[in-house]
Write a protein that binds this DNA or RNA. Structure first.
Lengths: 366, 366
DNA sequence: CTGAAAGCGCTAACAA
DNA sequence: TTGTTAGCGCTTTCAG
């Protein structure tokens, strides 16, 4: 066994000074080598690196940040993590960050109800170089503060009222429009719609896309078929249950504003003894990983979540590098992914898979 | 519009000094108030707080860490984020952390292949006060370094060869044993088993549990029925496809070492035109959120993932507070969750749901 | 109970 | 190309 210094509580870490001493150079030079400064003699660099290696030196991040260097850390503010939605975005972010050797501090919103804004400012204060804000359910109040400080941030899947932030999102209106059109072309006219949080831009855009498609096909918009949800599976379940119990409406298809609520709807439908898509069609939005796992596989509108994360990270990194860049907005195309949860109306006997090309962004996958 | 100082790049942040000045106190006192030191006159505290409020002061984390204070940050090392598994654990961690006002820096492993160890040490150096390591696919090499530095860390769902780390995991052996017994009681004797990464302890434990159950019920262990996978959906799919194409083996049930590979297996089975559970039963392990969404709902062994995260965080926090605490190991009970993917063998006509109590940790849920 | 002062480890002018 | 020297904002003895 090794020597018994278990109880030595605080072993001082190796610092840049130690390296300087060991290599017979100044700490400034060591610092230069470590942060990749160009103009150092090759032999010097080597001397430093040797000492670093030998002493097992590792940088102290807080010290570096404090001294004005790059912490190489960005803050990632998310509402939660348990559904694939955020995870997939985070995956994309992480990939891009890794390329630039950045890491992320994870913050969950709604953690300090009311003091969110204070919380965010703290994050932005010192530790992180920029912020990535993923789809909070409510429009954040601290954006002004960030902007005022000229602190880099990018919103993901979320609109900013002031139109003054960098934003990465997907074409929600378009996606909903095309999906609705698909259902219409399948023969449906009684299409129920489950909305998301209606204070969120993506939710209202999807609703608008749905309405526009109906209108363009001369199908009257029936408010009785529109139900306000909250992007949760539970909502989808409860709302659909309600729909199925009502006698006054008979939708032949349900378009849920996100996959999660679509899953809830599927549950309710099965519980009611109905078959999907024979008795009723279901369409979702997002294309989270689960969508292709459920049975029947969910037809849905794909948001390129991972790519959204990547691009957001890339923009943020650019912004960090050059804070004078003006905010930019990137809207990625959504894509209708046709799987097995939508069928024709009226149901055709013998037909297995409805696969009517509607032109544009269609996709058939697993 | 406000005044045009957009171009002022670096507005100095409000510091503790400003607060001191504004309140006519010393920065030491301000610091004391801010870090909740007990012995300050109430009126003084109030004066400080007022100034803080008025100036909009927020702490600078790096400065605090550097000066030896608590960063209130722990590092969270995870393999990925896109499946519910890690997300659910992270959710639990976050909850516990929030209670103690801690945050987490997210690190993804396999990001710096080969230099992982260096990476981890960097994390541990300065920024974070402790580390939570979630189920890396390989046994990490840097544990010794951490221990040597007396740096607090907790392993989640992962064994440590040296038996010298704090660990939170679940009763993998037991879970697999009970699940296998359940299948046996359902009448199955030809039970295929898809393993996980066999260098990972949880994977070998599950395999051992499966074997033990067979043995205890006098069913010969057939190595031809055991397939090595990697905890991935893809594996489950490929392996199952292979199984179904072989003539020499005819399993009536497949026990996959995690839900992900079970999902893959389900895909392969459906693709083969077979029905679950009528033609073949499927059993998973983990109970990730998707498990109750797939159709048919997956019968699986639940790992209390969220709770594992919570407890790991709690242990880490304790360890941070008092580094002299000896490492502890907590193994949480797994639980067989009976849903719809397993049926009796031979199949009984007319029977809807097999629900044979096997005693112990059974559970029927959605 | 409060203030003065010495760093924590690093970067960034400014010199040399 | 390299060294010297101030701090970055905070905590923490040590005096008062």
């Amino acid at each position: 066994m090794s020597n018994e210094n278990n109880s030595s509580k605080k072993r001082r870490n190796v610092t840049i000074m130690d390296v300087a001493q060991a290599s017979g150079l100044s700490c400034a030079t060591v610092s230069r080598v470590l942060s990749g400064y160009e103009f150092v003699k090759e032999t010097t660099r080597q001397r430093v690196m040797d000492a670093v290696e030998q002493l097992g030196y590792v940088v102290n991040l807080p010290a570096r940040s404090l001294a004005g260097g790059h912490s190489q850390i960005i803050g990632l503010l998310v509402p939660n993590l348990d559904n694939g939605y955020v995870g997939t975005i985070a995956q994309g972010i992480d990939q891009e960050l890794a390329r630039a050797n950045y890491d992320s501090v994870l913050y969950t919103s709604h953690r300090h109800p009311g003091k969110e804004s204070f919380y965010v400012i703290t994050i932005a204060n010192g530790l992180t170089e920029g912020l990535l804000l993923v789809a909070p359910q409510v429009v954040p109040t601290y954006l002004d503060a960030l902007r005022e400080q000229n602190f880099p941030y990018v919103l993901i899947d979320q609109a900013d009222a002031t139109e003054n932030s960098s934003i990465v999102d997907a074409s929600n209106w378009q996606g909903a429009y095309e999906a609705t059109r698909y259902l219409i072309q399948l023969g449906h006219t009684q299409i129920a719609f489950i909305t998301g949080e209606l204070i969120v831009r993506s939710a209202t855009d999807r609703l608008a896309g749905y309405k526009a498609a109906l209108k363009d096909h001369d199908i009257p918009i029936n408010d009785d078929l529109i139900f306000e949800g909250h992007f949760q599976q539970e909502d989808g379940y409860e709302i659909t249950k309600g729909i199925l119990e009502r006698a006054d409406i008979q939708p032949t298809a349900i378009f849920a504003s996100n996959d999660l609520s679509a899953f809830g709807a599927m549950d309710a439908i099965r519980e009611h003894g109905l078959k999907i898509p024979d008795d009723i069609s279901i369409l979702g939005f997002d294309d989270v990983p689960q969508a292709s796992i459920v049975y029947p596989k969910l037809t849905t509108v794909r948001q390129p979540l991972e790519q959204m994360g990547k691009i957001a990270a890339k923009i943020l990194l650019e912004q960090i590098e050059d804070p004078s860049r003006p905010p930019q907005r990137v809207t990625l195309a959504t894509q209708l992914v046709i799987r097995d949860s939508c069928g024709p109306y009226p149901p055709q006997e013998g037909e297995t898979k409805p696969l009517k090309q509607t032109g544009g962004s269609l996709l058939r996958t697993n």
